[in-house]
Computed example of a mutant assay.
Amino acid sequence: MNEQTKLALVTGASRGLGYAMALELGKRGYHIMALARSQGGLEELADALDAIGAPSTLVPLDLSDDMGVQRMCLAIHERWGKLDLLVHCAVHAAPLSPVSHVGEKDLDRSIAVNIRATQRLMGMAESLVRAASGTMVYFRDDMGGHKFQSTYGMSKAAQAALVETQIAESAEIGPRVLHLSPKPMATATRARFYPGEDRGKLASPADEAARLMAEILP
């Protein structure tokens, strides 16, 4: 792999928007580093990328594993010295529950993945993205005030605060940071929040990935 290779790290790449983003970037000439906990989903993605001639590296890793993320970023630094694009799609969606009944494990997992892991990934990847004059991409999902979605809504609101702060801090020194708003999509995560919803009225992750590329890769 030469220094001209465009490298994209996509988290949550085994399904949903992450999977679609990885495929769309593969079509556009990126080497995809696909991170997710699901080995099976990653292998399916690798097959799909291989079918379109897109190179990939699979990273079966829990994003809340600080040392694992640190080793991954060190490996990127040692092999490529930069990261052109970070697309952070990984998310933990806790079960629906009244706010007074949220389970301790669900609360802790939501904080660990949606808040803490996002901040750690920011810190570990930022210098790699800056070295490439690249872009860091995150996604909004405003669920605050929705019944039974307190844990997810709280953690995504905190994540949004992190992202908006990074945008302000990087405005003059880089890297470029984007906070995008996908349309409601027919994903497994949304199906958990809206059981019985007419999925025919929702956007497909593939269509949203293609649409959002106009903002990510202008």
Rank of each mutant, 00 (worst) to 15 (best):
V137W: 15
T11G: 08
M67V: 06
D47C: 15
R71T: 12
Y194M: 11
I167W: 03
L7A: 05
L85R: 00
V87G: 11
R79Q: 09
E78T: 04
K183Y: 01
H101N: 02
D47T: 13
E215T: 11
F193G: 03
S155W: 07
R199K: 14
L202N: 03
D84N: 15
A48F: 11
S170D: 03
L83Q: 06
T118K: 03
L178I: 02
Q119Y: 00
A90E: 10
I52N: 02
H179D: 01
I167Y: 10
T151A: 13
S100T: 06
I173D: 01
A209M: 13
Q159E: 14
D50F: 04
W80K: 14
A131Y: 12
P182H: 02
L178M: 01
M21C: 06
T187P: 01
G68H: 11
T189H: 09
C89M: 08
G196A: 06
K82E: 12
G134L: 03
R28C: 08
L25W: 04
K183N: 02
A191H: 12
E3K: 15
H77I: 02
R79D: 08
D62C: 02
L128E: 06
I173G: 00
V59Q: 10
S133V: 08
G40L: 11
V99M: 09
M33G: 03
A210F: 08
H77N: 12
L17P: 01
V69S: 08
V69H: 01
M33A: 11
Q159P: 09
A203N: 06
G53P: 11
D142I: 15
G12K: 05
C89E: 03
K147A: 12
M33P: 00
D207Q: 13
G53S: 12
Q70Y: 12
G16C: 07
M136Y: 10
K183D: 07
L96P: 04
D142R: 15
R176N: 09
A8F: 02
P205W: 00
D47Q: 15
P195D: 09
R192G: 12
G145K: 12
A90Q: 13
L85K: 00
A34V: 01
E169P: 15
A54D: 12
R130D: 10
E208W: 02
L85W: 01
V87K: 14
A188Y: 04
Y19V: 02
G145P: 13
L61E: 08
G144C: 15
Q4Y: 04
H31W: 11
E43W: 07
A93P: 00
G29R: 11
I52F: 08
M185F: 04
E104T: 10
L96F: 03
S97Y: 02
V177K: 04
V99S: 05
L83A: 01
I115A: 09
D198R: 07
K105W: 00
K201E: 15
S150T: 11
L96I: 04
S97T: 01
R109H: 07
S97M: 05
S14V: 04
E24I: 05
E78Y: 00
R211A: 15
E78R: 10
W80Y: 15
R37Y: 10
E44M: 12
M136P: 14
L180D: 06
V129I: 01
I115H: 06
V87Q: 13
L83V: 06
R109C: 02
D50E: 15
G103H: 00
E215W: 04
